[in-house]
């Protein structure tokens, strides 16, 4: 277990941990924005946007993440898009996760009772206003639990970035493994790091859930 404290392994490990955090956080924000946009597309009155949303979700939700990473890392440069491996990784992760967020939001929107949207419309609200001011805030409650699963899965999915030139935790594991350390010792620390991240995400969602519930009661 002492492997972390020799030969500069600690800096390597700490940097990997921070990079995993950074990548997960950036991708989470992008995925949330993309998910909201796609969900809006999928329930919008414009048929072309609905088709686009459906096709996007069906493609990105059903493609292995590794394949998406290959497509982004080796496809975008062919389109003259030259970005750092970190940005490529964030793009692949958020395109993938965004499609899951979209599906969660869409089913959340479906759980909001019809009367709410009807009332909003009878007040003369537009589609955008109905969605953002009335329906989505109410969908938030039923959406939080499945959303937390999606965002707990995100940091662990981000490990694939390690195979595509992002020096995060998986990459660190490969490096340490190549330096000849026993797999159990490496696994112990890497596992611990991921547990911490996943516990933190879980905690964050519990806090949000409490606040949303309290707001709902106060209202």
């Amino acid at each position: 277990m002492g492997i972390l404290f020799e030969h500069g392994n600690f800096t390597l490990f700490r940097d990997g941990f921070l990079r995993t955090l950074e990548l997960s956080a950036v991708s989470a924000v992008l995925a949330l924005l993309l998910g909201i946009l796609l969900a809006a597309f999928r329930v919008s009155p414009v048929p072309a946007l609905r088709v686009f949303g459906t096709v996007w979700v069906n493609i990105f939700r059903n493609t292995p993440l590794t394949l998406l990473f290959i497509a982004v890392n080796f496809g975008l440069p062919q389109l003259d898009v030259h970005l750092s491996p970190f940005v490529f990784a964030a793009i692949a992760l958020s395109a993938y996760t965004g499609s899951f967020v979209c599906e969660v939001l869409r089913s959340g929107i479906n759980t909001v009772s019809l009367g709410q949207a009807e009332a909003a419309r009878s007040l003369g609200m537009t589609f955008g206003q109905t969605l953002t001011l009335v329906v989505l805030p109410q969908a938030a409650r039923s959406v939080l639990s499945p959303l937390s699963s999606v965002f707990i899965a995100l940091p662990r999915n981000s490990a694939i970035a390690g195979a595509f030139s992002v020096p995060e935790l998986y990459n660190v594991q490969q490096t340490l493994s190549d330096r000849g350390y026993a797999i159990f010792a490496i696994f112990f620390w890497v596992a611990l790091a991921y547990l911490v991240i996943s516990a933190a995400v879980g905690l964050l969602f519990r806090v949000i859930e409490n606040r949303v519930n309290r707001l709902a009661v106060a209202r």
Binding site: A159, L169, F187, L195
Partner: peptide, 19 residues
């Protein structure tokens, strides 16, 4: 459940194979 839900498959599969 908490442990295996948090662990990246990539890392778990690799560790299982090596051990």
């Amino acid at each position: 459940v908490q442990f295996f839900r948090a662990m990246p498959l990539l890392i778990m599969i690799f560790a299982l194979y090596q051990s």
